[in-house]
Design a protein around this nucleic acid. Structure first.
Lengths: 223, 223, 223, 223
DNA sequence: GATGAATGAGCGTTCATTCAT
DNA sequence: AATGAATGAACGCTCATTCAT
């Protein structure tokens, strides 16, 4: 697996960045500090000017890498889902039973995130928190159709496609695999959000996580 | 029921508005044209200046009614969920079987909206579209906890509470009624959104609506 | 003196108010609450809208009494100096020695203020604090010459004139009675201000008040 | 002294500006035209928008240099007092007698200002007039204590400290050196103001300047 | 006389972005 | 490639004020 790890390289779609941030120190700092700053300020209050200050650089430098802050968020979400996909592939690979594969997928999607410097130079735990709080904003805007055509949401759609396929394999006669898969993916983040801000809206607590809810749901629905 | 209808008056929480828009012509115009304009421009591009222009008034007049455009969105979401609650109560009232009550609730939440001038002076179909496209923005921001404490999300929480109770009545041993209820409510809007922008992410089409997905899901989960 | 007291009626110059606030309950509330609010918020952040809220009335009502908030400040300063003048006359009246009269005048101007409901329905201690913090703003503006011609600063000028005359009586050959008198009047307020905000700029402390400084200064200057 | 002059560089405290206006042409224009415009309009009517117009630039450019117009005023007052301090040091330096030093200080503070392009690119005569009309506004506001802690009034306090020390040297037993020094500094500006707007409040005329009043006062007080 | 509703004007500020170096 | 300076456009909001009741 170490070998696999070393070959892990997130495949972020063309068009999200102007210049790949992984190809320079400044680029890496943009991602690293960007995650810290978006987490700290929230995406709405986050600006390239503030990020420029945080990395000791002028905001105009950041425009070499990203057209605007929205594209940076797309980069982070793309990275996140590519990373989820990587784990999905790795961890379902050796499982034979179709339903077990789905259940493993649920686990991958719903479990708490831990930092692992084997993967990245930046803070994945914070990235996960940003996904919970802000990822909706990556597609809730008027440019969504245009950006979708440009393939900027491909990472998410690849994860979705894989899970949909696993669901279909587990129960070929089930009628709503696409909806079930997207419910799992976006619903999980929302349940985490509710856990943080609206505890009465979720059954999740520190003991019972979104995973339990979805595992039960998958069991019943696909059985 | 006509009598009940005539007494329908949406109860929007204190603090959402400064002055109740229902109490004046200008206020009503703000809501009416506000819905048209938010639908037309999207919430991000929508401003009070533009709304002022659209109603032939200065934007400063609008500030008499709403502190800012975010509060106007909260008003619309509160109104929407209060209206959903009203239908929920009306239509589940006469049903005896507990599961049937849940299924009726699913229907109320997932069905297409139609305009009915018995209810309102404004366009509910467009309001529903705004809910699909923009309602997340009412709570995805840094003020969410503070606003929640002020009770600004009470309309949504009341609907959620009712559905949660129906679920518990239908299956007292089910472990995740809160999560299931919120999945239904937010998931439905998201499935509509996907249907419009990411058809591959949903099983919903013009023939098969979110309702079918959730009815199946509820059946399996609570059975 | 009781008789004198009962006849005490501050003579605020025409043109400062539109309608005399002493002639109605609303007017009295405007003064009372106005003092509280200016003290609380500072004059810059103080608005008629906020005052309207504080007295449970609409801001437009206040415009019946005062053209704008600047005129309200002029009213307060006029009242303050008229009240100082009253004390000045009362307390120097029985003194025969010319220098002692000046020294008494210094005392009247520099001593701490105490509330006395015999005089007024409002809080003189807070009024004094407002004078310390804000009274300069009554004349530091572009309309000063125009307002001066209208006689809006007459109260202050009457106090000044009286003190100048006392100085001249104490030492007819002293060359700068007008400057000395105005130094005393504005300097005292400034020394109080420094005591509150820039202790290093004043020799005044809780033990040694502006009075000691000016009494010493007058002694030396006029002797 | 020429050598000293050439090395004259006003030391404006950190925090007053964002970017030092002396480091660019635009910055210098902001100061130059800012002085003209504040003098012309008065500080209250002066805005960055108008200044932007006057220097043929957008107001947003000015925000690179100063956070707001209040900070620009702080810059001007800081510069003014630093310039006074410079003259104070230069001109008292060679004097031996302690009282003569104080009297020279009075002269420096109270004399009419003349333009001297050796010092600056901008109009010191107008700056002096702005000090007379507007300098109080630099500290008469609710942020005074906070800004004082940030050291934004250090220039004024340095002048004050020097004069206080001269007074103490001239008469070590005098009890109120701090108050006397601040009376001189703020009182002088006020006497100029009265001369312009309230001639009856001051003994100063075109023949007799604040200097005469204060020289007499210092003589008597410290003798 | 007092009030409530409505408004116009404009302020201070920020943002995303471009251009020249 | 990276940076610093500068900018245009617009936003959100408030204030003082007027008008009709």
């Amino acid at each position: 697996m170490d070998q696999l790890l070393s070959s892990f390289r997130v495949n972020v779609p063309q068009g999200v960045f102007i210049k790949d941030p992984e190809t320079s120190d400044l680029g890496k700092k943009i991602i690293e500090k960007g995650i810290l700053l978006i987490h700290e300020l929230g995406f709405d209050a986050f600006t390239f000017k503030k990020l420029g200050g945080a990395i000791g650089s002028n905001e105009s430098s950041i425009y070499r890498y990203f057209e605007n802050k929205h594209k940076l968020l797309l980069y982070l979400t793309s990275w996140y889902w590519a990373w989820i996909e990587y784990q999905l592939v790795m961890e379902t690979h050796a499982i034979n039973n179709a339903l077990d594969k789905v259940l493993k997928a649920v686990q991958v999607v719903t479990r708490e995130v831990e930092n692992d410097t084997n993967y990245t130079h930046f803070n994945i735990v914070l990235l996960h928190k940003i996904m919970i709080e802000e990822s909706s904003k990556s597609f809730l805007n008027r440019a969504v159709d245009e950006e979708n055509e440009l393939g900027l949401f491909i990472s998410y759609k690849r994860v979705h496609e894989r899970i949909k396929n696993l669901i279909q394999a587990a129960n070929p006669s089930y009628e709503f695999p696409a909806s079930l898969a997207s419910s799992l993916l976006t619903g999980t983040l929302k349940q985490f959000y509710f856990k943080n801000h609206f505890p009465s809206l979720t059954s999740c607590s520190d003991q019972v996580c979104p995973g339990d809810f979805y595992i039960h749901l998958i069991h019943k629905t696909l059985a």
